[in-house]
Amino acid sequence: MLALLLGFAVIHSGGASLRYWGAERIGERAWRLLFAAVSIPSAVVVIGYFLAHRYDGLRLWNLQDQPWIIPVVWVGTAISFLFLYPATYNLLEIPAVLKPQVRMYATGIIRISRHPQAIGQILWCATHLLWIGSSFMVATCAGL
């Protein structure tokens, strides 16, 4: 899992850091298509591996019988989606159907976090770490 997360980080963050260089050479739309063509499949691999192995590893704790854990997981997951959902890109810009635009947000979740999608993923991961309690989830959260 850590190797997959590292690979995704290199592809996604590395690709994002090369945006201006790539856009100058092949254009903004072509760069977005190329970036999405490598970034999205690598994310799918990481998510697929996570789903297949989320209960693997040593069980470090089991809080599933505690009465407070289900509300904590549900509330934490709901809050994580408040960060995740508005943080997604305009999906028509990714395949370059619409011209990409630079936006400055002074309201909403973006004023709280520079990368709300990452905050949402970390919060989601933390709530599920509490629920599952395995060494695999610890490694996943540490990698994320």
Rank of each mutant, 00 (worst) to 15 (best):
residue 86 P to L: 10
residue 78 A to K: 02
residue 85 Y to G: 11
residue 80 S to Y: 00
residue 81 F to T: 00
residue 107 T to V: 01
residue 102 V to G: 06
residue 77 T to A: 13
residue 106 A to W: 04
residue 99 K to W: 00
residue 86 P to N: 08
residue 94 I to A: 09
residue 103 R to A: 11
residue 91 L to V: 03
residue 104 M to E: 10
residue 106 A to R: 08
residue 91 L to K: 13
residue 78 A to G: 13
residue 91 L to R: 14
residue 91 L to M: 13
residue 85 Y to T: 05
residue 96 A to C: 11
residue 82 L to D: 01
residue 77 T to Q: 07
residue 106 A to E: 10
residue 94 I to K: 07
residue 85 Y to K: 12
residue 85 Y to R: 13
residue 95 P to N: 15
residue 84 L to C: 04
residue 83 F to A: 11
residue 90 N to C: 07
residue 80 S to F: 01
residue 83 F to Y: 08
residue 106 A to T: 12
residue 81 F to Q: 06
residue 91 L to N: 10
residue 97 V to L: 10
residue 99 K to N: 06
residue 106 A to K: 08
residue 77 T to Y: 00
residue 94 I to M: 14
residue 89 Y to P: 02
residue 90 N to I: 02
residue 89 Y to H: 15
residue 77 T to K: 04
residue 88 T to W: 12
residue 104 M to P: 00
residue 93 E to W: 14
residue 88 T to I: 12
residue 80 S to M: 05
residue 96 A to D: 09
residue 107 T to H: 11
residue 100 P to T: 03
residue 107 T to K: 11
residue 107 T to G: 09
residue 85 Y to W: 06
residue 97 V to M: 05
residue 76 G to M: 08
residue 98 L to S: 09
residue 78 A to H: 04
residue 78 A to T: 06
residue 103 R to N: 10
residue 106 A to S: 14
residue 91 L to F: 15
residue 85 Y to A: 15
residue 76 G to H: 03
residue 86 P to Q: 08
residue 100 P to M: 05
residue 89 Y to M: 13
residue 98 L to C: 03
residue 107 T to P: 00
residue 93 E to T: 06
residue 102 V to I: 06
residue 97 V to G: 01
residue 81 F to C: 06
residue 91 L to S: 09
residue 79 I to P: 04
residue 81 F to L: 12
residue 93 E to M: 09
residue 85 Y to I: 09
residue 90 N to A: 12
residue 87 A to R: 08
residue 81 F to A: 07
residue 81 F to R: 03
residue 102 V to K: 07
residue 90 N to L: 07
residue 84 L to R: 04
residue 82 L to R: 05
residue 99 K to M: 07
residue 92 L to Q: 08
residue 79 I to V: 15
residue 80 S to W: 00
residue 87 A to G: 15
residue 79 I to Q: 03
residue 87 A to S: 13
residue 76 G to P: 05
residue 106 A to V: 04
residue 106 A to H: 09
residue 90 N to K: 14
residue 93 E to Y: 15
residue 99 K to E: 14
residue 100 P to V: 01
residue 101 Q to G: 02
residue 76 G to Y: 03
residue 106 A to F: 11
residue 89 Y to F: 12
residue 82 L to W: 02
residue 104 M to C: 08
residue 82 L to Q: 01
residue 107 T to Q: 13
residue 97 V to K: 02
residue 92 L to F: 13
residue 76 G to V: 08
residue 81 F to K: 04
residue 99 K to Q: 10
residue 101 Q to T: 07
residue 105 Y to E: 13
residue 76 G to T: 01
residue 96 A to L: 11
residue 82 L to G: 03
residue 82 L to C: 12
residue 83 F to Q: 07
residue 97 V to E: 01
residue 86 P to R: 10
residue 97 V to T: 02
residue 92 L to H: 07
residue 94 I to F: 14
residue 107 T to Y: 07
